[in-house]
Amino acid sequence: MARVTVVTSGKGGVGKTTSAASFAAGLALRGRKTVVIDFDVGLRNLDIVMGCERRVVYDLVNVVKGEANVRQALIKDKRIEELYVLPASQTRDKDALDIEGIGKALFELKKMGFEEIVCDSPAGIEKGAQAAMYYADEAIVVTNPEVSSVRDSDRIIGLLDAKTKRAQKNEKPVKCHLLITRYSPKRAAAGEMLKVDDVLELLGIGFIGVVPESQAVLTASNMGVPVILMEQAGEAAEAYRDVVARFLGEEQPHRFIELEKKGFFARLFGGGNQAQPARVAVGG
């Protein structure tokens, strides 16, 4: 059975495309036949984050409008066997996507045997974001521990409850997973940043994991490599691997949430103020 998952957030710049790229790559690494679709028509970026920007010929709008078939528009990833990218159009506007046309494209992809269809949503709550979420079975809501991001995520969760096909046909609601990115355990412990539990309490949806703030994310996008595939990415890559494992139904203790308690001598002589990850399970 194919599953459609939208990666969404409301607010821009919180890590949607970064997360969609790593999430899709992670699913493919685990052997799931995966396609990741860029819905950000006019401002496409998934192609450059995935490193396939020079291989774009046809795009999602061509497919939705019937100007090309899905196979022509799909770009096969050169690193992972089961991974494909369907880029957005750079020249058209968001109105070029009609719900019916998207439905047909998704149907074609399912017929081709794709098991995981990941939709990378544009920012905002308007037509583009609603087109990306309409056919979703599950949603990954990407949130930064910061007031404007949490507020916007709440709006998006409201839309997922009301404006999707599942909602309109009175089917089982879209299953929402909260992904907290750019998290700093150190700042949260100091009371400078919302804690994971705070965000969970505010938004009240299932929790799929935390990705710690990491310099590797910029390096990865510079290189056109999903974070999850970068050897040097360390914690951020591990965090995304955990998220993928949980999404596939595996029990995986949450990490990178709290500072490791340092002993007295470690605090005296430990030197650097690097955030130490700790394996801490969180209730939620």
Binding site: E146, V147, A188, A190, G191, E192, M193, L194, K195, D198
Partner: peptide
Amino acid sequence: KTASAQLA
């Protein structure tokens, strides 16, 4: 220190 996160 005043915890601004609580205010948030």
